[in-house]
């Protein structure tokens, strides 16, 4: 008798069959999608379920093009190779920017010589030919002290690494190899906060959480007149360049026909401004989200990039570009 009661209680607790929206992809976009999924499920009271995985942007697109997922989180635009894989499988998609990710170059708070960093100086520190040669600060800029240069950065598998190398060194994945690399950004935070001669880079959210231990270096872009520090405002108004980039979700056109996916994406774009900020990322402007929503409802298919990342792209321009599949 007792067992039947327990069995009954368990069965009653199990919800009836619900629709599931499947999301997978970048770990950079994950916190945003997680926040949206959490709120969405709360609102729907379990009628629609959302699962989110972290396979990385590349791994996510692989699943996406095999139609295993409805939505793919991506910290960079879809690549030419991935476009081909999707085209061969007959998967069409819509590209929606959801937030900015700003890379922050951080230094130790006791570092007194860095008032601003030129992109050229960053390049001198990080380009492949610097390997083993540029080992002291004064080799980059003679007015800096003759102190060892300790570099910290994310590992080569991360989208942050891809974007930084593209924006600074001019080519994706082209970087010197003799720096302390970690896939765990908290390790980089520790490293830079303990060594006055250290410099490193990672996502803005990690800097914001560790403001007491780190200093963000203002960046002077090529051709710019004034160095800009990373912040919510400078990223949103587009003045923090070239280290700010939009991050995306991709929705497959087949899934767009499912009402539960449509509802989830609409919820995503409508609630992104508040939720993006809450998880430490920089939201797009209200017009951007409105345009993205419009693109979604009119099914503006394809990517605005054509298979290649672009440094310093403006979101309003991207959203109205003709999409390629």
């Amino acid at each position: 008798m007792k067992y039947w009661l327990i069995a009954g209680a368990l069965a009653a607790a199990a919800p009836v069959h619900a629709q599931i929206v499947k999301v997978d992809g970048s770990s950079t976009v994950y916190p945003i999608t997680e926040a949206v999924a959490e709120e969405f499920q709360k609102m729907k009271r379990g009628a629609i379920k959302v699962t989110v995985g972290i396979s990385g942007t590349g791994g996510g697109f692989k699943k996406f093009c095999r139609s295993e997922t409805d939505v793919s989180d991506a910290s960079r635009p879809i690549s030419a190779k991935e476009m081909k894989a999707c085209a061969e499988a007959g998967i069409k998609y819509i590209e929606l920017p959801v937030a900015f990710d700003a890379l922050t170059v951080v230094i130790n708070p006791k570092n007194s010589w860095i008032k601003e960093l030129k992109v050229e100086e960053l390049k001198k520190m990080w380009e492949p030919v610097a390997q083993g040669k540029i080992t002291h600060w004064n080799q980059v800029n003679p007015s800096w002290p003759n102190a060892p240069l300790k570099l910290f950065g994310p590992g080569a598998d991360s989208g942050t690494f891809d974007y930084f190398t593209d924006a600074i060194n001019g080519k994706e994945k082209s970087s010197r190899g003799d720096f302390t690399a970690s896939e765990d950004d908290n390790v980089l935070v520790q490293g830079v906060s303990r060594d006055v001669n250290a410099i490193g880079y990672f996502g803005l959210a990690y800097y914001v959480e560790n403001k007491d231990k780190l200093k963000a270096a203002p960046i002077l872009n090529k051709g710019a007149s004034k160095a800009v520090s990373p912040s919510l405002e400078t990223v949103m108004d587009g003045s923090y360049q070239p280290l700010a980039r939009p991050i995306f979700i991709y929705v497959s056109d087949k899934s767009m026909n499912k009402p539960e996916v449509r509802e989830f994406i609409e919820f995503y774009l409508k609630h992104a401004p508040a939720l993006v900020k809450e998880v430490g990322y920089v939201p797009l402007s209200a017009q951007h989200y409105a345009q993205a929503l419009k693109n979604f409802s009119t099914k503006k298919l394809g990517t605005g990039f054509g298979g290649k990342n672009e440094v310093g792209i403006r979101v309003e321009e991207l959203l109205v570009r003709e999409g390629k599949l």
């Binding site: 069995a7 368990l10 199990a14 959490e38 959302v50």
Partner: peptide, 13 residues
Amino acid sequence: TFIAFLPPAPVQS
């Protein structure tokens, strides 16, 4: 990584 529901229960009424 994010899943906010449980698999269906193994026993039912």
